[in-house]
Design a protein around this nucleic acid. Structure first.
Length: 177
DNA sequence: TATAAGATCTCCT
DNA sequence: GGAGATCTTATAT
């Protein structure tokens, strides 16, 4: 996946429409990525902004590394590291459409709706936790499909207090056809 | 060791 | 549409 070596703002829209598959507890779940968010170097909203720390270390690893962090002490959020190794950039997976393992997602979420409507929900539905952080794309966390297969729209980011002026959130638009 | 802040989700109205 | 819940991490003393 050489294209993951591009900057986060280029990789983020290409991830839209690709299939993300995780294997947890012997159960596979997969979804189509429909919403991503780019975090670039020098971005005050990025965890890598203030330098490398033990927790965000995976962001400075090579592209294709998975970076998982805890949000508000309750939820998990998953990123895919992009850009040159050591640049400290990543793409946050914000949402997607469930494809397979929906029953597993429902079981994990405890609800039948809003399964993968947000970063925390997505991780909970797919069984993603801190043990994924630092690992690379592979069996447990697989990314398949063709990059850039979907058309997309860019919007300002949400849920942060700084850097909201940049349009680094990417949402898959419905197929033109 | 203590304090402040955070890339969210859920329930209730 | 609005407010609360909850734990981890980084920084300063």
């Amino acid at each position: 996946m050489e294209w993951l070596g591009a900057d986060a703002d280029e990789v983020a829209p290409r991830l839209l429409g690709m299939v993300l598959t995780t294997r947890v507890d012997g159960e596979a779940t997969s979804l189509t990525i429909t919403e991503t968010e780019a975090y670039l170097p020098g971005d005050a909203a990025s965890h890598a902004y203030r330098g490398r720390t033990p927790r965000n270390a995976p962001m400075f690893a090579e592209p294709g590394t998975v970076y998982v962090y805890r949000s508000y002490g309750i939820h998990w959020c998953v990123n895919i590291v992009t850009g040159p190794t050591g640049s400290g950039q990543a793409v946050l997976i914000r949402g997607g459409d469930p494809i397979e393992g929906v029953e597993t997602m429902i079981r994990r979420r405890g609800r039948a709706d809003h399964l993968t409507d947000g970063p925390g929900k997505l991780c909970q539905a797919m069984g993603i936790d801190g043990s994924f952080s630092g690992s690379r794309l592979g069996e447990r966390f697989a990314l398949t499909g063709e990059p850039g297969a979907r058309t997309w729209n860019s919007t300002p980011r949400i849920g942060i207090s700084v850097g909201i002026d940049a349009e680094l959130r990417f949402v898959a638009s419905e197929p033109a056809g």
